[in-house]
Design a protein around this nucleic acid. Structure first.
Lengths: 292, 292
DNA sequence: TACGACCGATACCCGGCGGGTATCACAGTG
DNA sequence: CACTGTGATACCCGCCGGGTATCGGTCGTA
């Protein structure tokens, strides 16, 4: 029999992520024996071993690693189906646009102005998230459309349209010697003594090794820059980090960053298509230089 | 409670496609009452009406139409998870490359030759399908990678790399007056008296209105051309239709067709990546002119 | 207008399966 | 050797998915 149920996939993902039946069962809110049974049956149904139950721990087989990736995508798709259906049935339906807080602020403001001015425009709700969360929100149907940034964000699986390309700036503590430069190079901002690059968590929540401070949100990072503990390189239009204690210096050889509008394939509703068209129309009126 | 089960989605898709509870239940191999109950519970769980039970028939609400599209995608994703996991666990694992029978024949042959010559190359199984089937096979995990043709095929949701761009030719019965031309224009091949364009089935299996003959496979269409009943315009490298009774005449103003290699996003295994790289390397050695 | 056909909804029963508790088997460790 | 931590096994129970029988409303038709 084919036809896995999402419950089985959820169970497997929990075990594969925890690599521990007891903790996975706790996370799922069930007892451990039924979980073991469910995973065994799943392995039997799929026909391949998914986990190596070595004493002292559980490990993924190659097939299990594939299923972990695929199951996450499938569960996202199911969740997205529910959310998109709910929003489709909402009488006062609005488009949800998600973007990183502070990024592409001018472009977003112009897009919203333009979109509001369109005839029979659907209202646009703006959902601001932290770094790297857009893809998940779009995949799981919590949002209809996203502003994302190439090459930073993972655009795999979305349709996109380029909106705006810009250079990057280094954000430095105003008191730091480098802050007085007119422009910098990547070589100058890498390995600056006393200003190590901050570390973001990986997908599994762990942090890579390195000297930099650990951060989880933009606000944390901004404060660490203001405290003179780190620096960062970001697109010139980003606003979230630009405190009074910060200075932005162009980094002339940093890769260019393109802001794109992204939406799930096969979900291009009339409202999404209209918003994408409006966004693409912004090409014609270039953004003003950043002033503050 | 969120967390739909795939069974509920399968049930809903069946009803939404049949628009008839009795037939849907029969298709699912269950009785009608449990199906009605399941759909009602699904509507309650999602929180919006999905079907209008008007006496004399069932109709999709707007939200129902959204769920039909999303549920199909989600079920594809679940099915893909199973298939990809099975193949990942297969000790003699091979890549499955799917392409339309007869299309891009030379390019495919070269790709397979090159791929076989690569060191530590995974064996490549070729799966030939009919028009428009590639996307589904790729989405449901029956294939790992596909050769597709822009702008004909639906590339939404896949990562792609362009391989080869070419013009199109009209395939005509050899005995037809147009067959003696050196080249043609789209205006000349449209609405040719006695040679109406054939009609392909829509996704739901119905045929659009029009004068042309109905076809479902390339072989049917090829024979109808040989019988002098229709003509078609296809990329120059296509072979499936080129019978001795056919003549191919370049259509100078037909849109160019690009052969692309496509694969599911986030599923770029080492083997797929290697094959894509090999395919991209074919750029360097242009295909010989088509001779037969 | 009355009757029958059609179709989805309701009522009710049953069996299987998902989930719980208790316990086992085994490896590592002091 | 006892103890701890882990997943597997044994066994029971209650819910829910599925079946049959039937209802209720709406057409078409004579």
């Amino acid at each position: 029999m084919d036809h896995l149920e999402t419950r089985e996939l959820r169970y497997f993902v929990a075990v594969a992520e925890e690599l521990h039946f007891g903790r996975a069962a706790e996370r799922l809110g069930i007892a451990q024996p039924p979980l073991s049974r469910a995973i065994r049956r799943l392995e039997h149904r799929v026909g391949v071993g998914l986990l190596d139950r070595d004493r002292r721990g559980v490990a993924l087989t190659p097939a299990g690693a594939v299923l972990l990736r695929e199951a996450r995508a499938a569960l996202d798709a199911v969740e997205a189906a529910v959310h998109r259906t709910r929003r489709a049935g909402d009488p006062k339906r609005s488009l949800v646009l998600v973007t990183k807080a502070g990024a592409s602020h001018e472009l977003l403001r112009r897009l919203l102005d333009r979109a509001a001015g369109e005839p029979d425009a659907a209202p646009v709700d703006v959902l601001l998230c932290e770094v790297g969360e857009q893809a998940g929100l779009l995949r799981s149907g919590h949002a209809d459309v996203a502003l994302m940034h190439r090459p930073f964000d993972d655009l795999a699986g979305f349709d996109t349209e380029d909106l705006y390309t810009e250079g990057q700036v280094a954000i430095l503590p105003a008191v730091h010697p480098l802050a007085s430069y007119e422009r910098l190079t990547l070589a100058q901002v890498q390995d600056v003594p006393g200003l190590p690059i901050a570390r973001w968590p990986r997908l599994d929540g762990s942090y890579p090794d390195g000297p930099g401070p650990r951060v989880g949100t933009q606000a944390q990072l901004a404060q660490l820059v203001a405290l003179g503990r780190t620096l960062l390189v970001i697109p010139a239009s980003s606003r979230a980090w630009q405190w009074p204690e910060h200075v932005a210096v162009p980094v002339v050889d940093a890769p260019e960053v393109t802001t794109v509008i992204a939406w799930p394939p096969n979900s291009r509703s009339r409202a999404v298509a209209a918003l994408v068209r409006t966004a693409a129309g912004l090409h014609d009126t270039p953004l003003p230089a950043h002033t503050d």
